[in-house]
Design a protein around this nucleic acid. Structure first.
Lengths: 195, 195
DNA sequence: GTCTATACAGGGATAGAC
DNA sequence: GTCTATCCCTGTATAGAC
């Protein structure tokens, strides 16, 4: 039997997610209509519902995918070495990972309030898992006398906020390369937590 | 002549702004309707247009008011002392000011993309003015050999991102007082930029 | 799997009575 | 200054033809 005419599920599905990612990042979840997403994909609005039960699920799927990818990328890295080495690895990883997908990062930080309660709690849990990865490093370094942080939880949040901020201004092709920027941040983080 | 019945412009005007501030911060500009704002104030939707030409102007007014207040509060502080003293003053000021008005802060960082072009440029200009205040301090300290920052612009953005992040997690009545938190951040900033 | 058509709710904003 | 009523548009989501 010939394929049904106009059947593109393997292509259209990912394209719906890409279009939603792009538009949500640019205009915000609440400001983007299903019609806009459909136009971007090149289908009619009704067709989107073959790929997502509703708009909320589409947002959640994007955020969940991003957090899963983040955690998996981090845990796949070797966790060996001194706390200082592990911290350096974290800083460079965080900047590289986040600069590589600015749209997903933006959505994951900005659209939390548009998740319904159960979805929010899932994402919050994953975010906390990631924060704990950094806090473990800081605590280990403090236990060894390498680091001097008055409060490891605050230091964790401060470092992550500082590093994530890079996504709001960095543009490739600018004054500094990604590596130079990452080195620069690493200098500041290292000094901030060192004994 | 008796006053027109139901005339409350001096009261309702501020209440419209307060309601909008609260609702925009909680749900996001795009997700909040004029009807919701009206309900919060206790008037009908049409009555709001006595106080703002449209929804966009209401958002801009809130953000502009916040940025003006921020810059005025900072410039009204004495700018004397060594760069180290001035930096400490900036850090403590920034945290105190931002923790005192979490809703305005949230809106001013999250709703930039919902400003139309001319309004966006005004707010961006004010934001840059504020960043420049910090960068001037860092440059002065570097010139005197007090600070060791590889790039004063990056250090500026890193410090502001780190400090502003406090508004995403701090809740009064928590484990640490506002002053303890501010001292904690100041320790990290001082070490991060010191020679 | 995608289309057209449409249901139904809610959006911003305005007009005119009071 | 606020109200009611309303215009007109756009939103999400679904139904049924192809």
């Amino acid at each position: 039997m010939a394929r049904t005419q106009g059947s593109h599920s393997q292509i259209t599905g990912p394209r719906v997610r890409e279009a939603a990612l792009k538009l949500f990042a640019k205009h915000g979840f609440a400001a983007v209509s299903m019609r806009q997403i459909a136009t971007e994909v090149g289908v009619q609005a009704g067709a989107l519902y073959n790929y997502t039960p509703d708009k909320q699920a589409l947002l959640f799927s994007l955020m969940k995918g991003h957090m899963d990818e983040l955690l998996e990328a981090w845990t796949s890295l070797a966790q060996t070495g001194t706390p200082l080495e592990r911290l350096e690895r974290f800083v460079l990883f965080h900047i590289r990972f986040h600069l590589a997908r600015p749209e997903a990062v933006f959505i994951s930080y900005m659209e939390l309030r548009n998740l319904d309660r159960p979805n929010f709690e899932v994402i919050e849990g994953l975010r906390r898992d990631y924060e704990n990865a950094l806090e473990d490093i800081l605590r280990a370094g403090r236990a060894e006398g390498l680091f001097d942080v008055a409060d490891s939880k605050i230091a964790t949040l401060a470092v992550i906020a500082m590093l994530t901020g890079v996504t709001t201004w960095y543009r490739s092709g600018g004054r500094l390369s990604e590596d130079e920027v990452a080195r620069n941040y690493w200098d500041m983080v290292r000094k901030a937590v060192s004994a």
